[in-house]
Amino acid sequence: MPKTDLLQGTLDLLILKILALGPNHGWGISNRIRQFSREGLCASQGSLYPALHRLEMRGHIRSEMAPSENNRRARVYTLTEAGRQQLEAETQSWEQFALSMRRVLRTT
């Protein structure tokens, strides 16, 4: 696996957060990330789908093929209970991380 721990970590967290709001398909998730971050974050599609499948293999999300808005089948992802716990843990550690970074950077 390529060593991009930080980026993967944040993308996983973003995906879990979006799915906590309700089941969604890949395109919907990337759209939401863009929307909620006010265009500040853009999940590269090349890493979004591998991340989704990685989360599914870990059991944090599950997926099924379901009919979508334009009469095509889309793979719809849903957060699992394990994923919900993971989201809580990762949110906490991310906030701790961001706080520590800010403290260091604001030192004069």
Binding site: G46, Y49, H53, M57
Partner: peptide, 19 residues
């Protein structure tokens, strides 16, 4: 934006195989 359908599909397969 997708960065190549084939490439992405290979990346997904890679993730699954690693697991």
């Amino acid at each position: 934006e997708l960065g190549g359908v084939t490439q992405t599909r290979e990346a997904v397969r890679g993730v699954r195989l690693v697991f």
